[in-house]
Structure formats: structure tokens, C-alpha cells
């Protein structure tokens, strides 16, 4: 009798173990993955100490506790920058309210000669009133961007003194500890951007 039970028990235990492992693997596969490039391990970027649209100092380190998305572009940018900002606005709207409160979108100008803090404020407000536009003394802005490895270059000057500026293809996402966690491609769909931002926000919450 005991032998029979044992005979039944061992295969049953093996069976349960197989099911548990399968479920675990299954869960891992179901776990949502980032659509963006993940920075592993999350890294610290040089400090940003510039001027926000309201004229107040803007420091990246002051944003700790929030997930911060930094986009580097400029307001005269005719094509990609407004698209990227629209994507961020759309993604931001998709976030659940509790997550949205913990996410700050920041645009730093790559063209501080034309984009004063006031211009930046007006520009980002068009995409979402909660977004922060950042500029400052042109030399300081460009030094800060250089410390991030970003070197905006002006195009040749066209009619009426207009020019264009090169800017990064990716947006930077910092986790709640202020560490660079993701780099979002500029053409990622808003749905994926929202899902990635929520994942970073949840990382700090679990």
C-alpha cells in the first residue's frame, strides 16, 4: 500500500514541479518588456544646472523621486522635435493618474541662442502644461549638453538669418533614483513610450 502511494507520490511531485517551473517560465515570458534601449546598470549622468521656463533654477538632481524624461531639441525645429514632443504629450496622457504624477517631462534646448527660458516655457506648454522647458546662459547650456556627449551643430545660415540645429535621436529616461534607465527612440509609438515610462515608475515602487 505504502509502495503504491510512494509510486504515485513521486510522479505527482515531479508533475507539480514541472507545472511550477512551466508557470514561472510562462510568467517570465508574460512579464512586460521595455520597447526602448535599456541602460544596464542604470547610470548617473552629469548634473544639469540650468534655468526652467519660469526663471527658476532647474537641476536634474532636484527631480529625484520622479521618473524624468529628457528630450533635447529646439523650437525652430520644423519636423522631428514637435513630433517627439507630441509623442511625449500623447504618452503622458495615456499614463494612469498615479503614474503621471510621478513622471516629469523636460525639454532642454539644443539652441540656447534663440530659445530663452520664456520661449521654452511657451513651447512645451503647447504639448502639456506640466512639461518643463529648460534653457539658460548659452555657453552653460552647450557645456552641459557636451558633458552628456551631445554636440549640437548649426546648419549654414539661410534666408533672414535662420538656421537649423542637429539634435539627438533619443530621449533620456531617468529612474526615481536619478539614474539613466532608458533611451527612447524618437519614432517610438506613444503607446510603447507610455508603457515604458510606467515600467520605470513601477521599478521604483515594487
Amino acid at each position: 500500500m505504502q509502495r503504491i502511494l510512494r509510486r504515485v507520490r513521486i510522479p505527482a511531485l515531479v508533475g507539480i514541479a514541472v507545472i511550477v517551473v512551466a508557470l514561472a517560465l510562462g510568467c517570465r515570458e508574460d512579464a512586460p518588456a521595455f520597447a526602448s534601449a535599456v541602460v544596464e546598470p542604470p547610470s548617473r549622468m552629469p548634473e544639469v544646472n540650468l534655468v526652467a521656463g519660469d526663471g527658476q533654477p532647474f537641476r536634474l538632481s532636484d527631480q529625484q523621486g520622479k521618473v524624468v524624461v529628457v528630450y533635447v531639441g529646439y523650437t525652430f525645429c520644423p519636423d522631428l522635435c514637435p513630433l517627439a514632443m507630441s509623442t511625449l504629450g500623447n504618452a503622458y496622457d495615456r499614463l494612469p493618474a498615479e503614474v503621471r504624477d510621478g513622471v516629469q517631462v523636460v525639454m532642454i534646448t539644443a539652441d540656447p541662442a534663440r530659445d530663452t527660458p520664456e520661449v521654452m516655457a511657451k513651447y512645451v506648454n503647447y504639448f502639456d502644461p506640466s512639461f518643463t522647458g529648460v534653457s539658460g546662459d548659452p555657453a552653460t547650456v552647450l557645456e552641459t549638453l557636451a558633458s552628456w556627449g551631445i554636440h549640437p551643430e548649426r546648419s549654414a545660415t539661410g534666408a533672414n538669418g535662420s538656421y537649423f540645429v542637429s539634435h539627438p535621436t533619443r530621449m533620456y529616461v531617468f529612474n526615481r533614483d536619478g539614474l539613466l534607465r532608458l533611451q527612447i527612440a524618437h519614432d517610438l509609438e506613444p503607446e510603447s513610450v507610455a508603457s515604458d515610462l510606467e515600467l520605470v515608475w513601477r521599478e521604483g515602487n515594487d
Binding site: P78, D79, L80, H151, E153, S155, G158, V165, S166, T169
Partner: peptide, 16 residues
Amino acid sequence: ELHTTVKEGEMMRMVQ
């Protein structure tokens, strides 16, 4: 004007 957006490494820029 007619322009195209081009990618150079990790940077985007505008070319007339």
C-alpha cells in the same frame, strides 16, 4: 523650402 531630415550617428539634422 524643401528639406529632408537625416540621421547622422546619434544625431538628427535638417538638410535643404
